[in-house]
Write a protein that binds this DNA or RNA. Structure first.
Lengths: 147, 147
DNA sequence: TATAAAAAAGATAAAAAACTCTTTTAATAT
DNA sequence: ATATTAAAAGAGTTTTTTATCTTTTTTATA
């Protein structure tokens, strides 16, 4: 098990790709996204459908349709995607699921886990989707962009 | 989704309890463990069975039987339990599951995730089961010990 | 040695996550 | 208007995770 569910991984990889690919305008189809990020196409479709319904990513149907981000969406933090897909279990609650664990009555690893989870949350909150659009990410981002 | 699978959470909570409860000798039964850590008894039985087969926890059958830790087992790091149950996905690989991601060709969050995952691994490696036995944990650990 | 206690083993069931397929709707262009 | 393109919606299926139940084996002790 990694940090995220597979669904969430597909979602994040998907938005990485959409952001990069449509940085200069235009849209990108599920087919292209799925191929680029190595995910099952119909499954990814469902995931993006959901994110689209939530307004996290934009989409249009028909010829030249596809997925893209509007200006506002580019400002959203990655945390919103993670929360939408996996919930907030990564950020809150006891690290080992102890009901009785709390600030006043912490489990043996409470503070250590809290620290780490705060870091995860902070990272995902401070990182916006827009950070994956620019040329500055061309060498960093691992997709080849083609045309 | 939290950091660990439910199975792994039960395992960790279980060993917390066994360590604490048998610190002064003796054994503790699945029934008692399950009740204390709020887990389904037969499921926990399977989990401990597995850990027992791996030699991570000790057990004996029959009257006054149950689970306990021998000296060596108390030295084991928590990481071994996590790896046995959830694998090493929390520690290694790309945080978002990108095949192409590596040190030379890192994904946009590679280094940030690496840092966090290293911290998780370090925490779990440096923490041994034996740390959950002593009186020093009585106020910290959230189980009530009874008799 | 018989009985009881407790874990091990095996087989099954239920729920959730991951994934697929088919039909419908919306947008565009001819 | 019609045809085409591409996402949305809906209805499955498969796999994995979580959980249960029953039988067997081992150990202690009366």
């Amino acid at each position: 098990m990694g940090l995220f569910s597979k669904t969430c991984e597909y979602a994040i990889r998907g938005i990485f790709f959409i952001a990069r690919k449509t940085a200069g305008g235009g849209r990108v189809s599920i087919k292209d996204i799925a191929a680029a990020i190595d995910s099952p196409e119909p499954f990814l479709a469902k995931i993006l459908q959901d994110l689209s319904r939530r307004g996290i990513v934009q989409s249009t149907k028909g010829p030249n349709g596809g997925f893209y981000f509007d200006k506002d969406s580019l400002k959203r933090p990655l945390a919103e995607i993670v929360e939408a897909v996996d919930g907030n279990g990564l950020f809150i609650g006891c690290g080992v699921g102890l009901k009785q664990c709390s600030e006043i009555n912490p489990c043996p690893l409470h503070n250590e886990f809290k620290n780490i989870r705060n870091q995860i949350q902070h990272l995902l909150e401070k990182t916006s989707i827009g950070e994956f659009t620019g040329d500055i990410n061309l060498g960093i981002i691992s997709f080849s962009i083609g045309n």
